[in-house]
């Protein structure tokens, strides 16, 4: 997501944190966050092109083989030649493990940077819910699909990261992110309340299940993001109004699952 998407995801998550989790998060946040997790949920994007963090760039997405509308961890994430789990689901597993290890007790031999672990985890849980962050390798998750968003020339990935949300803010939420967040929170309690417990739980009571999040995203990418968005097409109300509910639900799911 862009700045707005990460802010919304983390703001929603903050509303669902337990007392223990809120206390731990506030202890881990950098001073610059002033106690607000949402204020630093884009940090991973800011450092992505910084020399010292260049290794983190591949952790924001999954490269799905072209036209495969499913996700397979070993096929899409595990780089067996380098024994690396170089994708967003691997990143979520890794930083969940780092925070759990630290919580389980001060293990001297491991000196993880838990503040970075929290910020990367919060960012990646958001990203894996953006369908085109699990998009096709061939079109770079929609980055190389040039389209028009109303009159503006852009690419399909940017439409999903940013343009749909910005158009929604202008059209429905008085350009006020808090109003959009409140609307999504109302949706969670009024319309999706039965789904929340399903969203929250993972098989075998595991802490996170990013493979499920990624499978949902590639399916949505094929059904909604890529559909009716061929290179050179102009996307307007027809596309915007039918895709906005998908975006808002993915932001809600990302927030509830992060919490």
């Amino acid at each position: 997501w862009g700045k707005e998407g990460h802010y919304v995801t983390c703001k929603i998550a903050q509303g669902y944190l337990s007392e223990d989790a809120l206390f731990a998060v506030k202890q881990l946040l950098p001073d610059s966050a002033e106690g607000d997790l949402a204020a630093v949920c884009s940090w991973a994007d800011e450092v992505r092109f910084n020399y010292h963090y260049r290794w983190s760039s591949a952790l924001h997405y999954v490269d799905t083989p072209d036209f495969k509308c499913n996700y397979e961890y070993c096929r899409d994430c595990h780089d067996s030649s380098k024994h690396k789990h170089r994708c967003v689901t691997g990143g979520i597993y890794n930083y969940t493990m780092q925070l759990k290890t630290a919580e389980a007790g001060p293990s001297s031999e491991l000196n993880y940077n838990l503040t970075e672990a929290l910020l990367f985890l919060s960012h990646f849980v958001g990203d894996v819910h953006q369908p085109l962050h699990v998009g096709f390798l061939g079109d770079l998750g929609g980055n190389s699909i040039t389209v028009r968003w109303y009159r503006r020339k852009t690419n399909l990935h940017h439409v999903w990261d940013t343009m749909i949300i910005q158009s929604a803010l202008k059209t429905f939420y008085d350009s006020n992110l808090s109003i959009m967040i409140q609307a999504i929170q109302r949706n969670i309690t009024d319309n999706w309340s039965n789904d929340v417990s399903i969203w929250e739980h993972c098989a075998h009571n595991s802490t996170a299940c990013p493979d499920r999040y990624a499978s949902e995203s590639i399916s949505l990418a094929c059904k909604f993001a890529y559909k009716n968005a061929t290179p050179g097409s102009t996307l307007e109300d027809g596309y915007f109004l039918s895709r906005l509910p998908i975006v808002e639900k993915r932001l809600a799911q990302g927030g509830v699952r992060l919490a």
Binding site: K100, E103, L121, A208, A259
Partner: peptide, 16 residues
């Protein structure tokens, strides 16, 4: 759910 799960474990150990 992820952060609540991670940071709840400490309380559980304390209670155990």
């Amino acid at each position: 759910a992820i952060l609540n799960h991670i940071f709840a474990s400490k309380t559980r150990i304390a209670q155990a």
